[in-house]
Amino acid sequence: MTAALTIDGIGVAFAGFKAVDGVSLVIEEGELRVLLGANGAGKTTLMDLVSGRTRATEGHVFLYDREITNRDEHQIARAGLGRKFQIPSVFKELSVRANLEVASCRNPHVFANLRFGFSRAQRRRVDEVLALIDLGDTADQPAANLSHGQTQWLELGMLIVQDPKVLLLDEPTAGMTQAETHKTAEIIKSLRGQHSIIVVEHDMAFVREIAERITVLHLGRVLAEGDLASIETNEDVRRAYLGAAAGHG
């Protein structure tokens, strides 16, 4: 097996507070990893560090053999790492199809894009993804008209069009109905094998549906790693996360 994403001892401190403190993770090619952790455990910050939003003060990140530590966001994205945000962000004034077309531009340079239309291969890819995320009927409507769930799928679709090596999905089911959550799980499962995926999630039903391996973060450190059963029976995790979750409920 080859490692698709290697996070090696990464960390960052905000005004002395270590939000992520020396986290190491290895995601194998084609693996689907779920990241768990209570609020403030450092999940989103970890995503920020990997995707270039936040600069790391220590450690390294590799995408396959290539070091991407502290590169600009667009460089990391071009290297093959796609990220979906917690609050879905799409281009509201553009049509659903145009949203995907923007993502399908292979060459990021402005002068390379001074041309009209898209190649047949690109259009086919956009159609495929439209079918996958089930937005074929609304392809020509502005993205602003989509429901919350559909918007999430569209953003997911934009990443899929790009065919990234590694996908970071930050709470892809946030705010979704049960049916929508289920469908999202289907989409993510269909990507398994072709992409290496990290999913940050709170919804345990969803996690049970998709999870193979789980990593639990707590206070900026890796608390435990293993399959679903071992995590659910892990005493540390119970105390740190499930206990906290019970406290919420």
């Binding site: 995707s51 667009h74 460089q75 945000f85 962000s89 799409v90 509201k92 553009l94 077309e101």
Partner: peptide, 29 residues
């Protein structure tokens, strides 16, 4: 110009800069 792909990307930037950045485009350019 605005009908080209670059024009489409530009309008995407107007709607949500960050998303475009994370799709791999150098937004300032």
């Amino acid at each position: 110009l605005v009908e080209t792909r670059a024009g489409l990307i530009l309008q995407a930037i107007r709607d949500d800069q960050n998303r475009v950045r994370y799709l791999g485009f150098d937004v300032p350019v």
